Computed example of a mutant assay.
Amino acid sequence: MKYRYTIILLSILIISGCSNNGSDNNLKQENEELKVENEELQQEIARLSEVNEELELDLKIAGLEGSRKVDQLTNKITSLQFDNERQKELINRYQRVLKFPVSNTRTISDTANIFSPDQVKVNNQIAGLIVSDIKTEAINDAIAYFIKFTGEFEVKGTIIRQGNDYSFMVNENLESMPHTLWEFERGSIFFDINNGEELRKALGDQLDTLPEDGQLEIVGVFKNYYYNEIPDSDSLPSYAEFVRLISEN
Rank of each mutant, 00 (worst) to 15 (best):
E53C: 05
S67H: 10
E37N: 02
A62D: 13
S67N: 12
E40W: 05
R47T: 06
K35G: 01
N26H: 06
L34F: 04
G66I: 00
D58K: 14
R47C: 04
E56H: 04
G66V: 00
S23F: 13
N21H: 12
R68Y: 04
N25I: 14
G66P: 03
V70F: 06
V51D: 14
S49H: 10
S23E: 10
E30M: 08
N21Y: 14
E40H: 07
V36F: 05
K35E: 12
E44R: 13
D58W: 00
G66H: 01
A46V: 02
E33K: 12
S19G: 09
S67D: 08
V51T: 13
E30S: 06
G63Y: 05
V70K: 15
A62I: 02
Q42L: 14
R68V: 02
V70Q: 12
E56G: 03
V36L: 07
N31G: 02
E53T: 08
R47H: 09
V70A: 09
S49A: 13
Q42H: 06
E53H: 04
E39F: 06
N25G: 11
E40T: 05
E44Y: 06
I61P: 01
L34G: 00
N38A: 13
L34Y: 10
L27C: 00
L48S: 09
D24H: 01
L48M: 12
G63E: 14
S23A: 09
N21T: 09
V36P: 02
E30A: 08
L57I: 11
L41M: 13
E65D: 08
E44N: 08
A46H: 04
E54I: 06
L64K: 11
V70T: 07
G22N: 06
E32T: 03
V51K: 10
L48F: 07
N38H: 09
N26A: 13
E44H: 01
I45V: 15
L27Y: 12
L41D: 03
V51W: 07
E40A: 12
E50A: 10
N52P: 02
L57Q: 14
E53L: 11
K60N: 04
K35H: 02
N52E: 05
N25A: 12
A46E: 09
I61M: 09
L59V: 10
N26T: 06
L64A: 08
K28L: 12
E53V: 06
D58F: 08
L41F: 14
N38S: 15
E40K: 11
E37D: 05
R68K: 12
K28R: 08
G66K: 04
S67E: 11
L27H: 07
E50F: 11
G22F: 10
E33R: 15
A46Q: 07
E56K: 15
K60I: 11
K69W: 00
E54S: 08
L48Y: 07
K60G: 03
K60D: 11
N21E: 11
L55S: 08
E32Q: 10
G63T: 05
K69T: 05
N38E: 14
K35C: 01
N26P: 01
G66R: 00
E44W: 07
L57E: 13
L48C: 01
L64H: 10
N26I: 06
G66T: 02
L27E: 10
L59W: 02
S23W: 04
L64P: 01
D58S: 15
E50G: 00
E33L: 14
V70W: 04
N25C: 09
E54D: 09
L41Q: 12
E33C: 03
G22K: 07
D24G: 02
A62R: 08
N26G: 07
L64I: 06
Q42P: 03
N20E: 05
